[in-house]
Amino acid sequence: MPDESPRPIRKIIHVDMDAFYASVEQRDNPELRGKPVAVGGAAARGVVAAASYEAREFGVRSAMPSVTAARKCPQLIFVKPRFETYRAVSRQIREIFAEYTPLIEPLSLDEAYLDVTENLRDMPVATEIALEIRGKIKAVTGLNASAGISYNKFLAKMASDLNKPNGQAVITPKNGAAFVEGLAVKKFHGVGPATAEKMHRLGIETGADLKAKSLEFLAQHFGKSGPYFYGISRGIDNRQVQPDRERKSVGAEDTFIEDIVELDLAKSELVPLVAKIWRHCEANGYSGKTVTVKVKYSDFQQITRSRTVSHFFGGEAELVENAAQLLASAFPFRKPVRLLGVTISNLGETSAAHEHQLDLAI
């Protein structure tokens, strides 16, 4: 006879290091402690890779142009990234995770999902596991971590932000749906500015507003994301924690609030996309040989243009140049452009990837 016993409620922890790159720099250089620090390039084309909490008080954020960050915080201290160091610390953290569960899904160097429903310590309470893990991370690395605990990945991710920095929060099955209903959709993980603006136009401001929409309505207006939004508005997210995912590509895209028709403006929008991709590649020690540009028009039709080179891309400037050339090959645009995306593939570890170049030259 089939096993009809109820499946245990999943226990998911999302661990997120607090201002990771900047905190490592403050740990290793006592002169930076308590001061506003930005990891990244200070030049005109520089981009902030990470900001300390002291810098965030002035409105400095990651992915912000360095000139904007310096204007918001004139006393901001720029520090060159040390990705080998960050990777070494990340390995220490993942070794701690592995003491508790083999089900670890890293999202980046500084965050990961852990499924501790059945764990190696036979600990029944996930909040206690999170406390232990955070304590060990502090003891081993000297750094603070925050954590969110819940019964699915979406809510665990949302919970990890509730008591930052150096805190944790739990969202239980009993209060998960109510938590989502009271949350502004613009704060949902996975809802960017353009999607939030579209939801606003459709009268969707909160999780409760989202829940009130039918599956058909959400699929019509948000395509493949419709069923996901339908589920999370009810506190439902059945995605599994996936350990050891082999990454085949790295991409970023942006949907614009106003459609773009000019080539120069479209090219400028490639820069922050490439910066995001390159930060991820450098942080994880790999690059790629193929770049693909995606163009989605106002009528939702889309095209892609790809190019493969004989070597691994060595920096942001080279990647931006190739992406811009691909974009130019699609000009004049047959319709206004509502979305641009950049992806690199044919990934591999390479010593040819130069030191992180946050100072772009285009």
Rank of each mutant, 00 (worst) to 15 (best):
Q75P: 00
V79S: 03
F97L: 04
Y100S: 05
A70R: 15
F97P: 00
I77P: 02
R91P: 00
K80M: 09
F83D: 02
K72Q: 12
P81S: 10
Y86E: 07
R82D: 14
K72N: 09
R91W: 07
K80G: 01
A70D: 00
Q92L: 13
P81V: 10
F78T: 05
Q75Y: 02
I96N: 06
V79P: 01
L76F: 07
A70F: 01
V89E: 08
E84A: 12
E84H: 11
F78M: 05
A98V: 08
A70C: 03
I96E: 06
V89F: 14
E84D: 14
F78I: 08
A88M: 09
R91G: 07
E84Q: 12
C73H: 04
E99N: 14
K80A: 13
Y100T: 07
R94I: 08
Q92P: 01
R91D: 13
K80R: 13
I93N: 03
P74G: 07
V79M: 05
P81W: 08
S90Y: 06
I77V: 13
C73W: 00
R94H: 13
R87T: 06
R71E: 12
P81Q: 10
R87N: 06
Y100H: 14
E99G: 14
K72H: 11
P74E: 05
L76Y: 04
A70P: 00
Q92V: 10
R82A: 10
F83G: 00
P81T: 09
R94M: 15
V89T: 13
T85R: 14
P74D: 06
R82T: 07
E95R: 15
A98E: 15
F83N: 10
F97A: 02
R82K: 12
F83Y: 14
E99V: 08
E99F: 05
R82Q: 13
E99L: 15
R87I: 04
Q75L: 06
I77F: 05
L76T: 03
F78C: 06
E95P: 01
V79Q: 04
K80I: 05
S90T: 09
V89D: 01
E99S: 14
R82G: 00
A70H: 07
T85N: 10
P81H: 09
I96D: 02
L76Q: 03
R91I: 12
T85I: 11
K80Y: 02
F83E: 00
I96W: 10
K72G: 01
E84F: 05
E95C: 08
R94S: 11
R87Q: 12
E99A: 15
I96Q: 08
K72S: 09
C73K: 01
V79C: 08
Q75N: 13
S90L: 08
Q75H: 11
I93S: 02
C73A: 11
